[in-house]
Design a protein around this nucleic acid. Structure first.
Length: 492
RNA sequence: GCACCGGUGGCGAAGUGGCUAACGCGCUGGUCUGCAAAACCAGUAUUCGCGGGUUCGAUCCCCGCCCGGUGCUCCA
């Protein structure tokens, strides 16, 4: 079953397949490492992760390049404010970014490309463009791309620039550009600003050139796929196309994948709205990494997802139910006789699961198919109508589901602990929710001692004491579950 | 302002010109339990932002309005 995916360039759903062989060459715009990533950033990275995981499940090997923008205006500004060189400022946020991806079970791309490590490739590309008269140098020593020479400009974002008159919006510093629309390839340094000495003159790369240069360097021309957030469509990706195709006179990327922005509690996420959250903010509020992943991938990438705390709590329960179901299937008493209805239902769910993801990565439907399996499987287990073959089939489908959704392995406690340790190091413990703090203050042994005390009280039929202990633990975020095989407890 | 996208039950959402409008959470009832919790089962939108229109028939197509979002400028 081939993946049919919307292509921004053609505005159509098209089959996505490697142009040659089994390797899909994809480039996805990575972060600018000047701060911690927020959930909006991660929705995009998560959706790209779903894409690459599904490709792998289909036997296609992604060769995925992600850039790290480790030099730009904000980095220069923030590093200067912190009084350190940019090379000392960015690693902290780059590391944090990869820790966050890890917490969200995002697979690492095959190639990580840092802008500052690829300056020569960018210089080469700009020189090539200059040779072909697509690039020109201005009085201050900056280089610009001449949009007038690239008639296809606007083909990705479907903008018509023919009627745009120049001079509408001109930066004071950029008065000598040929056209107001022309964008910077290379920026001359302001006094005292960090720069590279190159054949272009001193300066640093413009925002767009790094992606053009590094994509071609690591993947060659004619990428199978190029991905990013919807905001990057214009101007960033449009400019990448202009640079790359002007230089090579070949197609830069065949398929463009853009992930829609999310809303938070029905509003645009922004610092001024007070609804701006980093991953770490959420972990410190006590939300689980798996629930955050589940919520961010459950709404298809082209839909506007409304991120709410109610939704996040709901996903916590949903993930829990899936995990419980898998454990239940694993330890179920299966007979030798296969339940044919269940086998049919499992096959139907599998078909729906693959069909949904193949249909422009409809994660909502794919997920629904798995919950259909959960219901059918649970009913069969309750009715004791379950064969060994049914168990194998269901576990197999669950593992395929998890190859894409990656929420069944429970590493949540580890990541919560990670966030708490980080908060302690960074003096951010005031951002931790009181409940999580209380929960964390109790050691495992301490909890176990209380649980044992309650069990003893129960045995002695002293239910008042037993219930009191249970309530105390509940207030501190520890839940007790009595079961046939003894008493279990867990941190909420 | 111009362009594009969306508005489906308490919440998050899928979907389709006509079969009972998926799925998750929640809620209600049941099984289990000393009581709970957990788990499981069952029920839970005469209806798809509002007003028109096209059609034998519209939540799905067209027009207008209201609301939200995105782009036009840094942003995942």
């Amino acid at each position: 079953m081939t993946l049919r995916l919307f292509n921004t360039l053609t505005s159509q759903v098209e089959e996505l397949a490697p142009v040659d062989g089994n390797e899909l060459r994809m480039y996805a715009c990575g972060p600018t490492v000047y701060d911690y990533g927020h959930i909006g950033n991660f929705r995009t990275f998560l959706q790209v992760d779903v894409l690459r995981r599904f490709l792998k499940l289909q036997g296609i090997a992604p060769r995925h390049v992600m850039n790290i923008t480790d030099v730009d205006d904000k980095i220069i500004r923030n590093a200067a404010a912190a009084g350190v060189p940019i090379g000392e400022y960015t690693p902290r946020f780059e590391n944090a970014f990869f820790e966050d991806l890890d917490a969200l079970s995002v697979e690492k791309p095959e190639v990580i490309a840092r802008a500052t490590e690829n300056i020569p490739s960018m210089v080469e590309l700009i020189e090539d463009l200059a040779k072909q008269d697509y690039a020109y140098k201005t009085e201050d020593g900056s280089w610009y791309f001449r949009i007038a020479k690239f008639p296809e400009y606007g083909k990705l974002s479907k903008k018509d620039f023919s009627g745009i008159t120049d001079g509408a919006r001109v930066d004071v510093d950029e008065y000598d550009k040929d056209s107001a629309r022309d964008f910077a390839l290379w920026k001359a340094p302001k006094p005292g600003e960090y720069h590279w000495e190159t054949s272009l003159g001193p300066g640093r790369p413009g925002w767009h050139i790094e992606c053009s240069a590094m994509a071609t360097k690591f993947l060659g021309d004619g990428l199978d796929l190029h991905a990013g957030g919807e905001d990057l469509m214009f101007p960033h990706h449009e400019n990448e196309i202009a640079q790359s195709e002007s230089a090579s006179h070949k197609c830069f990327a065949r398929h463009w994948f853009h992930v829609r922005f999310l809303l938070v509690e029905g509003r645009k996420m922004s610092k001024s709205e007070g609804n701006f959250y980093t991953l770490r903010d959420l972990l410190l509020k006590g939300y689980k990494a798996s629930a955050i992943r589940m919520l961010l991938i459950s709404v298809p990438y082209r839909q506007q997802l409304n991120f709410t705390f109610d939704g996040l709590a709901a996903e916590t329960g949903a993930v829990e139910r899936l995990r419980t179901f898998r454990d239940r299937v694993r330890s179920a008493q299966a007979g030798t006789e296969t339940n044919p209805e269940l086998a049919d239902e499992t096959a139907r769910c599998r078909r729906n699961f693959f069909e949904a993801l193949s249909n422009d990565l409809n994660t909502a439907e794919a997920r629904a198919a798995i919950f259909d399996l959960v219901r059918a499987g649970n009913a069969a287990i309750d009715a004791k109508k379950l064969g060994a073959e049914n168990v194998t089939q269901m576990l197999d489908l669950l593992s395929q589901f998890d190859a894409v959704f990656a929420v069944l392995e429970d590493n949540d406690a580890r990541w919560t602990k990670f966030a708490l340790d980080w908060a302690a190091r960074e003096n951010r413990l005031d951002q931790v929710s009181p409940e999580l703090l209380a929960q964390n203050a109790l050691g495992d042994e301490e909890i176990q001692a209380l649980v044992d005390k309650r069990t003893a009280a129960k045995r002695a039929r002293n239910f008042a004491l037993a219930d009191q202990i249970r309530n105390e633990l509940a207030e501190k975020g520890v839940l007790i579950e009595d079961s046939k095989d003894g008493v279990r407890w867990k941190r909420k």
